[in-house]
Each structure stands twice: as structure tokens, then as C-alpha cells.
Design a protein around this nucleic acid. Structure first.
Lengths: 209, 209
DNA sequence: TTCTCGTCGAATGTCGACATTCGACAATCG
DNA sequence: CGATTGTCGAATGTCGACATTCGACGAGAA
């Protein structure tokens, strides 16, 4: 199943560039190669793996530029989605979002990496939930999977607890103004900053190998 | 191969909702079911087919709403890509684009459907070529394939020859102004209009069945 | 020593057959 | 007569084996 490979990727047992041997995964999961191949194809479609015909599947390895671009694209999509659904954010929705900000701060302070990331995902899922543009949702979901998995390990070390809280709260504050263009711009910048940071962080950690 | 199914879809031999029997395609192409399944998975990933587990693959059938959303998303992506690369459009690039506009008008007048569509694709490919955001390019390519194939038949009957020329020329005129926000807005509107029109057209042609 | 060529192993791509599951039809019951 | 259930066919999902191709290793020549 694809969930198994997801886990392996999260646990860091598989690093970017590593080759995925279907002939190893198959007996490991007690399945034949056919369903394994299907799962791998799906992961390739999600951008988590890259496929070289007649050679094999490899864990995707993004260049700093690709990382930045991927985050920028995510900001573009999410900014548009939220701006379109801006009207449907009621005051109590915004308060829920602010609660999530504070919760994230608490998790960040206590080094609860897993819970922090999960709450962060929930925050953005909440933002997106109001959108009903299926196409947009699908693309964003894919990007989210991709980025989430590739940088799961680093996420919690990018910002301090205060920065996390402030950055998220700023987004909520922009939502309150009910200005579409502003919301788009804010989310783009939000993701651009994170993209830059991830790319830098990633480049440094690659140097040490 | 996937190209074969593409053709069948273009020729209208396969209509939205139709079931794709892999056990029919396999002998037809002289292959076993394994490579057929891989090709179908790819088409599902591109959004051209939908997959119901344990049931089969079907030609994707979009609701008017999904059509509108897909075009809106395309406008979002292309608008952003072109706006980002706005600086790199030189005057002779713009002139090339204007030539393409006139060529489209000629093809439209002479009912050269195939050439018209191909030139239209070239126009937008040209717009996109300056972008180097791989993630953006990939998403747009997918959307392009999807929309192109599903509405190939109708494209040439949506606008008159003059409308086609004017609409494209207006885009070039906006490019000339070198204003990012304006470009984004223009391309979004461009695709929104087309999306609305395709959705209407499609809904009407569905009624007659 | 270094470059080239040939061989070999291993992993992917493909195949045909089997198992499983879904959907339709029909017989039975209320 | 209508609804429910059981049966049957057919298509998908899965499997193990074979064919093909790529990459590495090693031998030989310059």
C-alpha cells in the first residue's frame, strides 16, 4: 500500500535520491510486484517519487529552485482559494483559526513536533475548506503532500514558537479585512518566505553529506 | 500506449461517462493488460479518466461547475506565470504573438479547426515558455491536456473569427503595458469567459441526449 | 595506467492465468 | 405486483514467471 511508503519517507528511512526496489518492497508487504508498481506510479504522480524508465523509481530530490517554486505555487493556489471564499469566513471561523495559532505556539514551545505539524496542516485545511473549486483543491492537496513529506523533518526548526504564532495570526488579521487582493498577496508572501527558508535550510543540510 | 487512447478521445469515439474496458484495449493494441493498466493510471492522474476501484475506468465527465473551475484555475496559473516572466517578453516576442493572432483568425475564417486549435495551443505555449517554474508548468500542462481533450470538438465553434483575433490581441496589448497585476487579471478574465462559455455550450449539448 | 569493449548480474517491463469482487438478471417471497 | 435475495457472468485485482534492458565489473589493448 502507498501508506507504507509514506511512513518510510516520514521516518527518514528513505532519503532523496534513494532508489526504491520494488523487488524489496513486494515481499516486505507480502504482496506481488503488481500492486507495488501501481502504488509507486501513484507516488510518482504525486511528485514524491521520480521515475526513470528501464531504471527504477527514486525518492524525489528537489533543487533549491524547485523548492522555492513549489512553495510559491502553493501560495498562489491557496491565496486564490481563500480570496474567493473570503465572504464565507464568519467571525467565529476567524476565532477558531486564532485558537489554532495559539495551540501551535504551545506545541512549538514544548517541542511537540508531530502535533505542531498536524495543527499547522489543520490550519491550512481550515482555510481551504471553504473553497469548492475541486481542481484547485486537488492541486493544492498534491503540493501539500509533496512538501509535507519532503520537509517533514525540518518544519519545526524553521521558526521560533513566537514567529509561528505571529505569522499565522497575521494571516488571520488579513482575513478580517475582507480584502481579496490583500489576502492573495499575504498568502503568497507567507509561502514565499517559507519556501526561501526551506530551500536555504535544505541546501545547508545537503552540504554536510 | 497512451497516445492511442488520446486519439480515440479526440475522434469522439469515446464520450464522457463511457467505460474503458482494458480487456478490449489490450488485444486491440497487441499488448497484455499490464501496460494498458499503467497507461490508464497515467490518464487518471491527468484527470482525463476517472477510476472506480473494483469497477473500472471511465471517461471523465465534468459538471458545468467543474468546467468553470478548471478554466479559472488555468487562468490563475497562466496569469501568474506570465506575470512573473513579464520582463523577458521583448518587442519581437510580442510581434510573434500578434502574428499568431492573425493566423488564428485566418484559420478560423476558413474553418480549419485542427490548425486553429494547434495555433491556439502554440500561442499559450509561447506565453508559458518564458516561465521556469517547473511546478507551475506541470500543473498547467495537465490542465491543458485535460481541457484540450475534453472540449476539442467544441473549441472552434465558441467564438467567431473576429472574436478570437480580438481576444488574443487584447492579451498581447496588456502584455505591452508591462504591468504584472494587469496581466494576471487579464488572463484570469480571459479563461473565466471561455470557461463560462464552454460550460454553457456543454450543458446545452448534453440536454439533447 | 587508463581507456575501451565485452560479459554478466540484477532490476524493470511484460505476459498469461488465477482469484476476487461487482452488477445484472431471475427466481422467490411477502 | 413489487421488493428482496441468490446466482451467474464478466471485469478488475493479483500473482508468479519470463523477456528485455541497463549498469557495473573485469579483462585486454594502447
Amino acid at each position: 500500500m502507498v501508506a507504507h511508503v509514506y511512513e518510510r519517507l516520514q521516518k527518514g528511512e528513505l532519503n532523496p535520491g534513494d532508489k526504491i526496489l520494488e523487488s524489496l518492497l513486494a515481499p516486505e508487504l507480502g504482496l506481488s510486484r503488481a500492486p507495488i508498481r501501481e502504488a509507486l506510479r501513484q507516488l510518482v504522480g504525486d511528485g514524491l517519487l521520480s521515475d526513470k524508465p528501464q531504471v527504477g523509481n527514486f525518492v524525489a530530490s528537489l533543487s533549491p529552485r524547485e523548492i522555492i517554486d513549489a512553495y510559491a505555487t502553493r501560495g498562489l493556489l491557496e491565496g486564490f482559494a481563500v480570496a474567493e471564499a473570503l465572504e464565507s469566513f464568519a467571525e467565529n471561523d476567524l476565532e477558531d483559526l486564532e485558537d489554532l495559532c495559539l495551540q501551535m505556539e504551545r506545541y512549538a514551545r514544548r517541542d511537540k513536533q508531530k502535533e505542531l505539524i498536524e495543527t499547522g496542516s489543520e490550519f491550512h485545511r481550515f482555510l481551504f475548506n471553504k473553497s469548492d473549486n475541486i481542481q484547485l483543491i486537488e492541486f493544492t492537496q498534491r503540493l501539500s503532500n509533496k512538501l509535507h513529506l519532503l520537509f517533514y523533518k525540518h518544519w519545526s526548526s524553521l521558526y521560533t514558537a513566537e514567529e509561528i504564532r505571529d505569522r499565522q495570526q497575521e494571516l488571520v488579521a488579513v482575513l478580517r479585512q475582507k480584502n481579496q487582493a490583500l489576502v492573495e498577496q499575504a498568502l503568497r508572501q507567507h509561502y514565499n518566505e517559507t519556501g526561501q527558508k526551506v530551500a536555504r535550510f535544505y541546501a545547508e543540510s545537503e552540504e554536510g553529506e
